[in-house]
Amino acid sequence: MINLFINGLPVSVEEGSTLLEAARFLGFPIPTLCHKDGLSPYGACRLCVVEIGEEPKAKLVSSCTYPAEEGLKVRTASSRVVRARRMVLELLLASCPQSKIIQDLASAHGIRQQRFKQEHEDCILCGLCVRMCQEQMMAKAIGFRSRGEKRSIGTPFDIKSEECRLCGGCMYVCPACQLRCTYTEPERPICGGCANLTPPCLEKRQFDDMMCFMDPCVACEIQKEG
């Protein structure tokens, strides 16, 4: 067993587990897009960032790929982490505003502005479908092609692959094409229609280390201040 601190709480987790697994097991929610149980960790979406270490040497790492270490101090919802996550979400929202999963995450994280150009891409290159095809379906029909801004996922030569059995696993796991967000107001980049989860007290004040079992309630923090 490995002993570490998550949000100040001393916990022990099994050796070899990642920070994401540890935090989720203990009930600390961490949002992810490119992580799925049964598939290898990939660290593509950067939504699962957590802060490790102590000031001034604290740094942000992706919790889905970072193994739990002895004595490590992890903060899963510090203001720095939340700020980073919001930026990631705003960027994801710019590339894929039609995805309901991303729109819901954006609503849950209180994103109220969109400073980037809307791209309406079909893919966020999270690689879930590639890993699904390779690791669960044992097919390896699709993969990454090219690189840089031309990077895309698909079959070789863009023709139907002989390995593909049309299982649909790739579509099942896709966060971008699985569910479409049906905008109430199509011209707005942020929907926020069905998942407006921010409690009213949060709008007024900012809290560091806002985290409790009743996420996103921050009654305890408010009490502490008062």
Partner: peptide, 24 residues
Amino acid sequence: EDALRVVADETGNSLVDVYGVATF
């Protein structure tokens, strides 16, 4: 294209891996 297929078959790699390297 056929050469890539032969390479994939012979090396035991999948075609998509070979294609990925060739386009990278």
